[in-house]
Amino acid sequence: MAKNTTKQAKTYYDKVHTWGRISTVTALCVLLMFPMAICLYLGVFPPFEKVFQGLLKVIPLYWSVAVVEVIFYTPMLGAGGAYLSFVTGNIVNLKLPCAISAMESAKVKSNTEEGEVISTIAIATSSIVTTIILAIGVLAFAPFLETFTSSALLMPAFKEVIPALFGALGAGYFVKHWKISFAPIIFMLIILVFVPTIGASTLIFPGIVASVLCAFIMYKVGFLDKKEK
């Protein structure tokens, strides 16, 4: 009986990996078809060097984050949960907490098959709900978009969307990781004092290097030992 269960369990995990691999590769193709379809529909192809220039600013950070995320989150999300989460995104702020919360309330461990099932159900539900809310929101908002963006009253809100978005997003990080937040921001402000035209996109790189380096030094000297986690 026990042997039978183990065999069945292996089969289920193997099946999940097969479905996951197929769906991930399909998702990648669908994803790449989207900008291609835009180009074909609009009859334009952006110059390669411009796209490459944009990618140069994005790839070093986000491809390394992708490697770190896959290594760290795959075990936590479970097999099915990982394949779903990496396709639908918003892992740290949505899928992972959702899976952990569902496993906790169901009182199952993440390294068991019950945990795998609950985690997959939680993440699949979360993906469906997010997709539906986004679809409804977009379709409902579409008729009013032009009114919103062309309104003189609302103009400053859209002009200042970056400080609003990153201020609200940063606040969460600053509260949780305040010890490692001060030094890199002071460092970036000093750079801006001398080079005000550098722009946020270029500032990201010295900012990230300073941030990781400061965090490493603080960690090594034991400054992060107690409260920071």
Binding site: P184, L189, L192, I198, A200, L203, I208, S211
Partner: peptide, 19 residues
């Protein structure tokens, strides 16, 4: 990961203060 994101978010925040 937090340090990476603080570096990234910090760049936009600093730019809103002194850019």
């Amino acid at each position: 990961t937090p340090a990476l994101f603080i570096g990234l978010i910090g760049a936009f925040i600093s730019n809103s203060i002194l850019g």
